[in-house]
């Protein structure tokens, strides 16, 4: 057990980061190998000016307004899940540093920030996790079942796993935040620190699943994160 824990906390994190960055770079290179379409693929209506079209693509990206028009239920699921994910990623910045200026400005002490982070973290976790169950179970019926490939289930199970272990850390094992920051900073400063006492099995699982997600990210559908931005511009050119 200790060996596995050691590997997962001190070795594979580096492999995951390299795989993520290298994989994304490789995919971008692979896409760029092909020449762009020498035609306008625009869908209308579209804004007239170039800046307007860029703005429209960004608004569509952040609000999913196109999907909202045609499929409200899927929009609710997809939008809220991504919103929760965005909030969680922002919140995880506190794992390596802190929003000192924000707390100073709000005049919050240790206790207030702790309460805020507990409430907001749990809230964002639920925003992320509940839609994931909807997105998962809708794949078991009708046309979506026919369309679904093993990858679709795998990615959703992986994300649910990350969400559950994360919620467990927040609500059950109550991992302490400050010692965790010391440990994480040690990883990127190459000044390795021991795992905090409070980090239990849920942390190991959470950490390992996130690494798996990072390694898998460039090689599957998760690349829509990057590709959809490109394509929204192509379809407005």
């Amino acid at each position: 057990m200790d060996v596995i824990e050691y590997i997962l906390t001190y070795i594979t994190p580096y492999i995951a980061v390299i795989a993520l960055l290298g994989g994304v770079a490789y995919q971008a290179y692979r896409w760029r190998q092909k020449s762009p379409v020498a035609a306008h693929l625009s869908l209308y209506p579209r804004p007239e000016s170039r800046l307007g079209r860029l703005g429209d693509a960004l608004v569509d990206m952040f609000t999913m307004k196109g999907l909202f028009t045609v499929n409200k239920l899927l929009w609710v699921g997809g939008f809220i899940m991504h919103l929760g994910l965005l909030l969680l990623i922002l919140g995880h910045i506190r794992v390596v540093t802190d929003f000192y200026f924000l707390w100073d400005w709000l005049n919050w002490g240790e206790a207030e920030t702790h309460t805020f982070s507990a409430v907001a973290g749990t809230g964002a976790g639920l925003l992320f996790m509940i839609p994931l169950f909807y997105l998962f179970f809708r794949r078991f019926g009708g046309k979506i079942k026919i369309l679904s490939t093993p990858e679709d289930y795998f990615v959703l199970v992986l994300l649910v796993g990350i969400a559950i272990t994360g919620m467990h850390m927040r609500l059950v094992s109550e991992v302490e935040q400050h010692p965790m920051r010391v440990f994480m900073q040690g990883l990127y400063k190459f000044d390795w620190q021991p795992l905090p006492e409070s980090a239990g099995l849920s942390f190991i699982w959470h950490f390992a699943l996130v690494q798996l997600l990072m390694i898998y990210f460039p090689f599957g559908k998760l690349m829509h994160t990057i590709g959809s931005v490109f394509n929204k511009m192509v379809m407005r050119s």
Partner: peptide, 22 residues
């Protein structure tokens, strides 16, 4: 004959199924 968009279509489609109704 793959152009750049075609190259990434297969990679990034998440099979959400919204297109079926279209």
């Amino acid at each position: 004959r793959f152009s750049r968009p075609m190259q990434y279509y297969g990679d990034i489609c998440v099979r959400c199924g919204a297109c079926a109704d279209a």
